[in-house]
Design a protein around this nucleic acid. Structure first.
Lengths: 178, 178
DNA sequence: ATAGGCTTCCAACAAATGTTGGAAAATATG
DNA sequence: CATATTTTCCAACATTTGTTGGAAGCCTAT
């Protein structure tokens, strides 16, 4: 709390005054970044609408990776939320499965009855996490492979396209859109 | 430190006596789990030796996922190491790129000169992280999708095969080995 | 058995961290 | 302008957490 307050340039009590205790603040931040990510997904959907699937995936990856690299706290906080083990139990956010279902639908992976299967949501989740992983782990991995910021980001895009396009769009040669 | 000592059933000073301070203990644990993971990779390699690539991937995923679900701290600690931002800088472990290179070689992804390209290591890293993600995130995700332990683990295997086999072994129908 | 080492624990210290009371400053309202 | 309300900060508190000194217990070799 002190560190956050200092970063913002206010006293820690002012932080408490406006945002409540640590748990409240954390929840507010999570809600906020989830909203942001939701808006970005809508933006992406608009751009890729109508294109063939493989191209949609490629563009979506490019856009989301760029977006998250600019806001890497989003990836950080999401991953921490998934993996961090707390002694206190945490607030729940039901929007992740909704996002996953939306993305699944956007990729044409709906069932005969229009709903999205759990298997599909798991697959989408894997994509989302893969992006977050590379964004949040930038410090660690770029150091590990001796890549500069630019080279690292490019390699992330290439790697994720290499994996996801064959998996979700079958036969397709990766080209370059960004 | 107190919590660890309590879990082990000793006094916290005894913990210090044997393992040094928190950083030393953390390093020792990381070394230990990395050794374990290394041994498991060797074990996997023995089993899949000589089989066709797609089958190798399938079996390796099954084995590694089972192994990590039994030792989920390995996934936890690895991911934390990748993503956690500390104010103190951390000890470095150079074995991850070696593992990635070994796995890449084992998948036949070596360059003409026998070395393994950074792109390839990134791809392997993506696989490793995907497994860790689902293992470490079990609590969160199984709750999210209302899956029991058994169903969740099965779904993880299916999902990762669904994504990785087309990406790394081209045309291939997923069958069931485990 | 006993001296000397090794191991364990209790108690304490210092620093970090979550949180709040209350005074001062800033702002709004009449 | 005077008053009421809101906002900010300082100082303190209680708890958590990393760490250590020293006494007590245990083990081994003579």
């Amino acid at each position: 709390m002190r560190i956050i307050a200092q970063e913002v340039g206010i006293d820690v009590s002012t932080l408490y005054y406006h945002w409540g205790d640590k748990g409240d603040l954390y929840e507010a931040v999570l809600t906020d970044i989830t909203d942001d990510l939701g808006s970005e997904l809508v933006r992406v959907e608009k751009v890729i609408k109508g294109r063939p699937l493989a191209e949609r995936i490629e563009i979506a990856l490019d856009m989301l990776i760029d977006y998250l690299f600019e806001q890497s706290e989003i990836s950080n906080l999401n991953l921490m939320r998934f993996f961090y083990k707390t002694r206190h139990d945490m607030a729940w956010d039901a929007r992740l499965p909704v996002f996953a279902a939306d993305i699944g639908r956007s990729m044409g992976m709906r069932q005969p009855d229009g709903s999205v299967a759990t298997d599909t949501k798991m697959e989408v989740l894997a994509i989302i996490m893969a992006i977050h992983n590379f964004v949040s782990g930038e410090d660690f991995f770029s150091n590990l492979f001796n890549l500069g910021e630019e080279a690292y980001r490019k390699s992330v895009k290439r790697t994720l396209k290499f994996i996801m396009i064959p998996a979700f769009a079958g036969e397709y040669q990766v080209t370059h859109h960004s």
